[in-house]
Computed example of a mutant assay.
Amino acid sequence: MQYLLLIYRSEAELSKMTPADRQAMSAEYGTYTQSIVQSGHFKAGDGLQPTTTATTVRVRDGKTLTTDGPFAETREQLGGYYLVEAKDLDTAIGLAARIPGAKEGSIEVRPVMIYK
């Protein structure tokens, strides 16, 4: 089964990181990504640009409305994701717990719908 692992953390805290801290975090993510590629769990994954680059789209009464920025103000923002293949939820949770961002933010684990 496929699961989407959504990585949330504070953009404000991320912006306070030193270049050395960012490089260390990047290396940690590289190591993690390589491990799930090698184990066969990896399907896809990417980091996201900051929420300041986001555009929210709504359609109301047939009209497309756009707003700069994210849908809601929160303490943690969606910063990236992994799409993984896992035999069950426990395996997906184990993969999520190893994501470097889990130490300071949170990881949402969501099963992907299967359409037949």
Rank of each mutant, 00 (worst) to 15 (best):
E11F: 03
E76D: 14
A24S: 14
L83M: 10
A96Q: 00
I36T: 02
H41G: 04
L4P: 00
E104Q: 14
A72N: 09
S39G: 08
L95T: 01
P70K: 01
E85A: 12
F71H: 13
A44Y: 10
L89K: 11
K16A: 15
T33R: 09
G69W: 07
A24H: 12
F42Y: 13
T56P: 05
K16V: 09
T31A: 15
A102M: 14
I114D: 15
T31V: 15
E104H: 13
R75S: 13
D46Y: 10
A92L: 01
T91V: 15
S26F: 14
P111I: 02
S35C: 04
V37D: 07
R22T: 12
P19V: 06
A96Y: 01
D68R: 05
S15T: 11
K16Y: 07
L48R: 01
T31H: 12
A72P: 03
L4Q: 05
T18R: 09
E11Q: 11
Y29P: 05
F42A: 02
T64A: 11
V84L: 01
T33N: 13
T31E: 15
P70N: 07
E85M: 06
A92T: 01
R60S: 05
Y32W: 08
A54C: 11
R98F: 11
M1K: 12
L95Y: 01
I7G: 00
L6M: 15
L14H: 13
V109D: 05
G94T: 10
P50E: 05
M1W: 08
V37Y: 10
A54K: 03
T53W: 00
M25F: 14
K116C: 09
I107N: 04
R60I: 08
G45F: 02
M25P: 04
R60L: 09
A97T: 14
V57Q: 04
I107P: 02
S10E: 07
A27F: 11
E85I: 03
Y32C: 04
V112S: 09
I36Y: 02
T52Y: 00
P70C: 03
Y3C: 01
G30V: 02
A97M: 13
Q38N: 15
Q34Y: 04
D46I: 07
Q77S: 12
P19F: 04
S10I: 08
Q49F: 01
G101R: 06
A20E: 15
Y81D: 00
Y32K: 03
M17V: 07
T52A: 11
A86W: 04
R9V: 06
I93W: 04
Q23C: 09
T56G: 06
A24V: 11
E76F: 08
Q2D: 14
V37E: 11
K103F: 08
V84M: 00
G80I: 06
T55F: 03
Q38F: 03
T67R: 08
